[in-house]
Design a binder for these strands. Sequence first.
DNA 1: TTAGAACCTCAACTAAACTTGAGGTAAAGA
DNA 2: TCTTTACCTCAAGTTTAGTTGAGGTTCTAA
Lengths: 149, 149
Amino acid sequence: MPHSPLSVGQVAKRCDVKVSTLHFYEEKGLISSVRSAGNQRRYKPEIMRRVSVIKAAQKLGVSLQDIKLSLASLPNNRTPDKEDWAALSQQWHKLLNHRIKQLENLRDSVSGCIGCGCLSLVHCPIYNKDDYLADNGESGAILLNRDNE
Amino acid sequence: MPHSPLSVGQVAKRCDVKVSTLHFYEEKGLISSVRSAGNQRRYKPEIMRRVSVIKAAQKLGVSLQDIKLSLASLPNNRTPDKEDWAALSQQWHKLLNHRIKQLENLRDSVSGCIGCGCLSLVHCPIYNKDDYLADNGESGAILLNRDNE
DNA sequence: TTAGAACCTCAACTAAACTTGAGGTAAAGA
DNA sequence: TCTTTACCTCAAGTTTAGTTGAGGTTCTAA
């Protein structure tokens, strides 16, 4: 009998997460299981892929809540197949690009601060709204002496 | 009398943080104050710069703990001046570059996964140790069919 | 002088993403 | 069969970075 159902321990081991994490994901509605006669969790092998997708998305900085929504948006909430994964990862790829861009802008602003020697950080883009930085490519020289006044 | 000491409310307003946040930072040893006759907090104007540096570092993803350490490493734990800020931001600039690089690797790995159509994510670089990705520039093609076995 | 704004401390609460522990059941191997 | 390992539930604890609220004091300004 190929593909026999997996126990929570087996899944935990092979996905390199703790059993408690799988319990937690289930509680949060990210994964599901059936129960054996003795009330133990049993998983279809594809659970591995689902857990893996969750982990991958987390590394991209996606919250469990958003991951849940993404997965739930798949046809009958199935474990992502090849096309699904492509779509999901494209979504997340965009997100990643956005975050990278923000960080780069931030980094350049820091350099700008060094460059201009300005310490009036209160009005510096760095602590202004994230989207200020995200929206335009400014690596900007920073502002005026309005602290210490 | 120029530069009169600032109250917690004034600092909060001008740094755009809540009063409770300043209390919190003080409790955590990130900032300090003296007390007025009536036991109210009074700050030197440079507190603004210190708070601003804290906020900037946070945007770079530095934890309060690490910010505290960085600030504490300055000569007599002073509020960063021009040179100090240059040094700190250079430190943090490195950190940022590292994080950007990790994200880029991750992003490229995601693309790799789409490209090869492989769904065996268990062994995919994406959920292997962060440093695996950080250390080499692999955008890797992914592995074998060891899930679903 | 007196109302109301601003301040004080301390404790408890929030959110995310889990982990740990207690007390008890099920399954697997010698 | 017996022992050990794996599993179950439910409650409570952990970390980070604060926020909220209660109960009380101090400042400021009309």
